Amino acid sequence: GFTKEQQRLGIPKDPRQWTETHVRDWVMWAVNEFSLKGVDFQKFCMNGAALCALGKDCFLELAPDFVGDILWEHLEILQKE
């Protein structure tokens, strides 16, 4: 899971503390893990605080249908851990 990747890359547990690099690493991991298609990494050029502050509607505009939902749900789980 993502926990191993977080440990390997030194990504903080709390997504709100992520840098732009951490956000990119997470999106890249999720794309590979969940076989997601059509993700534009440029749209995720922000730090974790900005990403978490978007709200669901704005977040879902960053990625194609269903893909955004998967990313959003995973981000929500990470914020609760």
Score class of each variant (00 low, 15 high):
1 G>E: 12
1 G>T: 06
1 G>N: 15
3 T>V: 11
3 T>L: 11
5 E>W: 07
5 E>K: 08
5 E>V: 11
7 Q>K: 15
7 Q>I: 15
8 R>T: 09
10 G>P: 06
10 G>E: 11
10 G>H: 10
12 P>M: 02
12 P>F: 03
12 P>Y: 08
13 K>D: 11
13 K>A: 12
13 K>L: 11
13 K>N: 14
14 D>G: 01
14 D>R: 03
15 P>T: 04
15 P>N: 02
16 R>V: 11
17 Q>W: 08
17 Q>F: 09
17 Q>M: 14
18 W>L: 00
19 T>K: 08
21 T>Q: 14
22 H>W: 01
22 H>P: 01
23 V>T: 09
23 V>I: 04
24 R>H: 15
24 R>I: 09
27 V>A: 07
27 V>M: 12
27 V>E: 00
28 M>T: 15
30 A>W: 07
30 A>S: 11
31 V>L: 05
32 N>P: 04
33 E>C: 09
34 F>R: 06
34 F>T: 02
35 S>R: 12
36 L>R: 00
36 L>Y: 03
37 K>H: 11
38 G>N: 15
39 V>T: 05
39 V>Y: 02
40 D>C: 09
41 F>H: 15
42 Q>A: 10
42 Q>H: 11
43 K>L: 05
44 F>D: 02
45 C>Q: 14
45 C>I: 08
47 N>A: 07
47 N>Y: 02
48 G>V: 02
48 G>C: 01
49 A>Q: 13
49 A>C: 05
51 L>N: 02
51 L>V: 04
52 C>Y: 04
53 A>H: 07
53 A>L: 07
53 A>I: 04
54 L>Q: 06
55 G>R: 12
55 G>S: 15
56 K>Q: 07
60 L>Q: 15
60 L>N: 09
60 L>A: 13
61 E>R: 12
61 E>I: 02
62 L>I: 11
63 A>M: 09
63 A>V: 14
65 D>T: 15
65 D>R: 13
65 D>E: 14
66 F>R: 15
66 F>G: 15
67 V>H: 06
68 G>L: 03
68 G>T: 07
68 G>M: 01
68 G>D: 02
69 D>K: 11
69 D>C: 08
69 D>G: 11
69 D>R: 10
69 D>W: 06
70 I>Q: 12
70 I>A: 09
73 E>D: 15
74 H>P: 02
75 L>E: 00
76 E>D: 13
76 E>N: 15
76 E>V: 09
76 E>I: 06
77 I>P: 05
78 L>Q: 07
